[in-house]
């Protein structure tokens, strides 16, 4: 596989929730324009790691972070980092769809409006593009001004993806985006992820190993706060170097 360079990397990242040492010496390099999956049993720190990348852990009380997180070579764990700008460039899709209680249109336009886009035509255009990219446009184009809450779970999740894409991030973080969805909705989102890597770097946390194998180019296996192994997905699933990884991907624990 062609090397695209590294967009995001961590060096000896450690994270404590109070007494709990949640991430231990994580060093990982996320390749640009690729889908990277993070797998591992519940509580291994996958989501915590993901939330380090857009500094959403800042909202949690009693978090201490050590080590470096480099985004395009710049350390974003620096307290002086502009987190607002950072989060604009590193978007996130959550486990449970969390649409705002606005209309479908306004949900996608929200990010644009807060970043100062006022022009109606411009908004229309970007909303449409984003929804098309999120493979949602055809299903909702006739009811853009209906409340978003009326959509199905899978549609809501694609709405949240469209909302994230509308602000043009470089990286899209996905925290188990399909865990609340049925198989059909899941396969739509998986197809979408495949499309997205043309333009974006995707980092996805998933419980579902088949999903990781299907959608990702690289996979990191985490266990008890450590990154056990990281490599191309085919290698991780077919010839893991670590015994733990082997056990996990073959379903012998987890």
């Amino acid at each position: 596989m062609q090397n695209n360079g590294t967009i995001l990397e961590t060096e000896d990242l450690n994270l404590h929730y109070g007494e709990n040492h949640a991430l231990i010496d994580i060093s990982i390099r996320i390749p640009r324009y690729r889908v990277t999956a993070l797998i591992g049993p519940s509580g291994c720190g996958k989501s915590t790691l993901l939330r380090c990348f857009n500094r959403l852990n800042d909202l949690v009380k009693g978090v201490k972070i050590g080590g470096k997180i480099l985004f395009d070579g710049k350390d974003i764990s620096d307290p002086d980092t502009d987190v607002v700008e950072l989060r604009k460039r590193i978007g996130m899709v959550f486990q449970k769809p969390n649409p705002f209680p606005f209309s479908i249109y306004d949900n996608v336009a929200y990010g644009l409006r807060i970043h100062g886009v006022r022009d109606r035509k411009e908004l229309d255009r970007i909303v449409e593009t984003s929804m098309k990219r999120a493979a949602l446009w055809d299903e909702v184009k006739d009811r853009l001004h209906d409340p978003a809450m009326g959509l199905s779970g899978g549609q809501l999740q694609r709405l949240c993806i469209a909302r994230t894409l509308a602000v043009e991030p470089d990286i899209v973080l996905m925290d188990e985006p399909c865990s609340a969805l049925d198989p059909i909705a899941t396969s739509k989102i998986e197809d979408l992820i495949d499309e997205l890597k043309q333009n974006y770097t995707v980092i996805i946390v998933t419980h579902n190993m088949q999903q990781a194998a299907r959608v990702s180019d690289y996979t990191g296996f985490m266990y008890l706060g450590r990154l056990i192994e990281f490599g191309e997905t085919s290698q991780i699933f077919e010839s893991p170097r670590e015994e733990l990884t082997n056990k996990y991907v073959t379903g012998r624990f987890g």
Binding site: R87, M92, F94, K96, N98, G111, I114, C160, V167
Partner: peptide, 22 residues
Amino acid sequence: PDALREGSLALGATHWQTIARV
């Protein structure tokens, strides 16, 4: 729900934008 706050912050909204609009 906190999910809404996180959703807004994750889009790069500032703290006050999140409070005022979401």
